[in-house]
């Protein structure tokens, strides 16, 4: 999201009379303004990204001699069932990281906006707290909560159960994201024209119809932002899974982030890791493009 530097609109037509030299300088000046940011962006985002694209075409352990692999690493990403299923798990996390938090956040924000409470700052802080905790700490805390000697008094650890581990890890994502979505949506509600609500009341709308016909459409932009941030978090999830299950039991909670880490640091297969990372980033871009199309104002 750092690449939103926008060139100032050119004043077409006004400078047509100016000598060619001046016009040329005028065209380059805006570039100068974005240059510092562009240099950093190129050095720390674009070049490493292209570099990892390049490495993904090699079989390389990070230290020794690299051998050309062509597209073999990419073929493996799509044919190896373990790698493929980790991609599926990441997309499944969108339900827990985005859909549930936005849904819960919408309802909470609508409720809170309708009935302003005195305890509001406290509620906001508590709901937002998971956002400011390091995800590793979140993982450690929830690992304990889900364990047999945790506060839930569970019979046996959920994280060791093949059926429960995945939703258990996913719900941590919900817990983390809900506060962010709630705050974003709440601030959005404040910007909705009050007259729309009045009009809805005059038309005889109940609170539920008001929610669907005024609040939700009015929050289109905020929902788009919340979805963008949380979907990226879902697809790039690593910390929570790594700390809580390491991808287990079996491979039930394996996600690309953990797989990439293992490929590089355990298996010594930097090329295959870069291929998986590239596929993941392209898929993320595709999802973001689709999301943008969906939420763009008509």
């Amino acid at each position: 999201m750092a690449d939103t530097a926008v060139l100032p609109a050119r004043r077409v037509g006004r400078e047509t009379a100016a000598p060619p030299r001046r016009r040329r300088r005028g065209r380059l000046t805006p570039l100068l303004y974005v240059l510092p940011a562009l240099i950093f962006y190129a050095a720390f985002v674009i070049v490493p990204w292209v570099h990892s694209l390049w490495i993904s075409l090699w079989e390389w352990n990070g230290i020794g001699v690299a051998t050309w692999a062509g597209l073999a690493n990419y073929i493996e990403v799509f044919t190896d069932s373990a790698l493929r299923s980790s991609l599926v798990h990441a997309f499944g996390f969108i339900v827990f990281y985005s859909v549930l938090p936005i849904g819960i956040g919408l309802v909470l924000a609508a409720l809170v906006a309708a009935t302003p409470w005195k305890a509001m700052p406290l509620i906001r802080t508590i709901l937002f707290l998971p956002q400011i905790l390091p995800l590793v700490a979140v993982g450690v805390i929830w690992k304990w909560i889900y364990s047999a000697d945790g506060p839930l008094g569970l019979d046996s650890s959920w994280l060791g159960d093949f059926a429960l581990a995945y939703p258990a890890v996913g719900l941590v994502g919900t817990w983390v994201s809900t506060g962010l979505c709630f705050l974003l949506l709440l601030s959005g509600i404040g910007k909705i024209e009050p007259s729309l609500y009045e009009a809805a009341k005059v038309e005889g709308c109940g609170p539920i119809r008001e929610f669907w016909h005024v609040t939700v459409p009015g929050l289109r932009k905020e929902i788009a932002v919340a979805a963008t941030v949380t979907i990226i978090a879902a697809l790039a999830s690593f910390d929570v899974v790594y700390v809580m299950t390491g991808g287990g039991p079996g491979y039930t909670t394996m996600v690309p982030g953990v797989q990439i880490y293992q490929l590089v640091f355990t298996a010594g297969r930097v090329g295959a890791a870069c291929a998986l990372a590239t596929v993941l980033s392209l898929l993320t871009c595709a999802v973001m493009y689709g999301l943008n199309r969906l939420t763009r104002e008509r």
């Binding site: 190129a42 674009i46 070049v47 292209v50 570099h51 390049w54 490495i55 090699w58 390389w60 352990n61 990070g62 230290i63 020794g64 001699v65 690299a66 050309w68 930097v270």
Partner: peptide, 21 residues
């Protein structure tokens, strides 16, 4: 241009090109 420059920067096999001494 950026892609070309960065491609130049990386256009060689990653890691050491020779077998260990």
């Amino acid at each position: 241009a950026i892609v070309a420059v960065s491609a130049l920067a990386v256009a060689c096999a990653p890691g050491s090109s020779e077998a260990p001494a």
